[in-house]
């Protein structure tokens, strides 16, 4: 009988699918809506515990990348892997299992406005995972405490401020303890002070809970804050000192432009690139 040799995989995929490999891989992903090309050729990997920060102008396809990871959209070409599973050609039923390990914070929060904060945050535990009521309540209290909104448990989303809604959305995304969190413009439209409270939640989840994250934003201040700070427990309090240079390596920026990756590297490299690349300079200034 003839031996069937599988098609050779790219070095990127070999690494990704090997032991301890990255948990999200994009391999030459392409996507267009009608005539408009959104992603021309995008490849990157997200490693466990690391952060990828996507920058780019509006309409550059940043949010699209998050929807592709969740399987809410299908690419026209290329492959996408999440936790070693190929999701770009997966059926909706099988995707539900992959989504179990993903938490998504939508732009504006996308909270269910017919449900209370308690029901929003506990949604997945109650409806999909069928947790016992007391366990779900305890977990909801815990995550709402984590984002500092414990006393808002009985409110409706319409009674919350913009910043509180984003933090409830973060609480909802983390309630079922996913290992990967995706943030879509979590600080857009917030004042700088409130934005920092949201940034701190992202840092806490990454550094205290070991969550890998992808952050899509065009708020540079927040992007650099998340990349260059770390969370440390000091007794009861949590502090956010500057991260060590090694720690800063774990946060990588990707700048999208015309459907391609125009820049990939850490915060320092991004600042350096701005001195030679007019587009990046315009973006950072």
């Amino acid at each position: 009988m003839a031996v069937v040799h599988p098609a050779p995989r790219s070095a990127l995929l070999e690494e990704a699918l090997g032991p301890g490999g990255p948990i999200i891989v994009f391999d030459h992903v392409q996507l267009a809506f009608d005539d408009k090309i959104i992603l021309r050729d995008v490849s990157f990997t997200l490693k466990t515990g690391h952060t990828k920060i996507f920058l780019g102008a509006s309409g550059a396809g940043k949010s699209t990348i998050l929807r592709l990871i969740l399987g809410l959209l299908k690419p026209d070409g290329g492959q996408i892997f999440v936790n070693g599973e190929r999701v770009d050609d997966m059926s909706e039923d099988n995707l539900m299992a992959v989504r179990g390990d993903l938490g998504m914070v939508f732009q504006e929060g996308a909270l269910f406005d017919s449900l209370s904060v308690r029901e929003n945050v506990g949604y997945k535990l109650d409806e999909e995972l069928n947790w016992v009521r007391s366990d779900a309540d305890a977990r909801v209290q815990e995550v709402l405490g984590f984002v500092g909104l414990g006393e808002f448990i009985d409110r409706r989303p319409s009674e919350l401020s913009g910043g509180q809604r984003r933090r409830v959305a973060i609480a909802r995304a983390m309630a079922a303890k996913p290992r990967i969190l995706l943030y879509d413009e979590p600080t857009t439209g917030l004042d700088p002070i409130t934005a920092v409270t949201v940034d701190e939640e992202i840092i806490k989840l990454r550094d205290l809970e070991g969550v890998s994250s992808i952050l899509v934003t065009h708020q540079l201040r927040d992007a650099f804050f998340v990349a260059e700070h770390t969370a440390v427990r000091q007794g009861q309090d949590i502090e956010f000192p500057k991260a060590s240079p090694e720690k800063c390596q774990e946060a990588e920026f990707i700048m999208l432009r015309d459907g391609l990756i125009a820049f990939e590297g850490n915060a320092g490299e991004l600042r350096n690139a701005a001195q030679t690349d007019a587009y990046i300079e315009a973006f950072l200034s």
């Binding site: 809410l72 989504r99 179990g100 939508f106 999909e128």
Partner: peptide, 21 residues
């Protein structure tokens, strides 16, 4: 309005099939 405010996408992201729910 659930569609335009991404609540349907949020349902799917949380593992719920909007048709069933």
């Amino acid at each position: 309005s659930m569609m335009v405010t991404d609540q349907i996408a949020a349902l799917r992201a949380l593992g719920t099939d909007p048709i069933r729910k």
